[in-house]
Design a binder for these strands. Structure first.
Lengths: 133, 133
DNA sequence: TACATAAAGAATAATCTTTATCTATTAAGT
DNA sequence: ACTTAATAGATAAAGATTATTCTTTATGTA
């Protein structure tokens, strides 16, 4: 297991073994719901409390270490914060993939038309993945 | 109040006064959360049960009469189903606007690159609206 | 390296939020 | 008008999230 002590401290979070394991799990699995995270964590910390999962997810959200991805017809999943990207969701197998889509020109255009100052996008594309056609 | 009896029946739902009022409220307000819908409904039906709101929202979702819009950092809102569109969310005042963005070419491109069969998009653009600059 | 202290973890209670159950009422077809 | 299946309301139950309390621990400092 890699050590994420510094990453956590950079985000003003104490580097506890539980938190290191959360970051590790997210890095390994990409996107996780609270319940899948809890079950993964239970394997490493047999007496971990569900409240610890929620508390840390909220703290990490507040400190922008992680990001919440809201999915249609599914529970939210969490991912480590990275450069802006969109998400592909397979409606059959539930798999989630990151995809880099350059939306800048489009967003600029919309911004002008609507007079909205847009600074963030959440874009989820749903369908069937390669293996689920 | 317009009568949405036929709209409801077309979606295989009995046209009860409560349901007509829900459709009416959504048409009037555009996007509503469960709680705002409940408080609006209470004004018309002083003894309406919150369970009735949830039950009807779920039925209307199943019958595609309404659609759930999941927003970053906010509760879901519901809207009457209409042709595909994206959403603008003002982070300051919370206002939500529909915006028609033609994503077809973009989605086609992504579909080819990723080998995903994409048939739906959920696109929320967040920022500050005209009045909140 | 040990110490002090603020923060975090575990256990569990409390608070939402949503769904299920049960009975009386009602929409809709005949 | 009558019948019947579906719905509304009341409320309990279940599920999800947050708060509380006490014990343990990470981290800065001597």
């Amino acid at each position: 297991m890699i050590n994420y002590t510094d990453t956590l401290r950079e985000h003003k979070l104490k580097a506890t073994p539980q938190r290191i394991a959360i970051v590790d799990a997210l890095l390994l699995n990409g996107h996780m719901s609270t319940e899948s995270l809890y079950s993964i964590m239970l394997a490493k910390f047999s007496s971990i409390s569900l409240a610890t999962i929620y508390k840390n997810i909220n703290l990490m959200l507040e400190n922008s270490l992680i990001y919440e991805v809201k999915l249609p017809h599914a529970k939210s999943v969490y991912e480590l914060t990275k450069s802006s990207h969109s998400h592909l969701l397979c409606k059959k197998c539930g798999n989630i993939e990151d995809v880099a889509i350059d939306l800048e020109a489009l967003v600029d255009k919309i911004s002008k038309i609507t007079e909205f100052q847009i600074d963030k996008t959440d874009f989820v594309l749903s369908g069937n993945c390669k293996n689920c056609h």
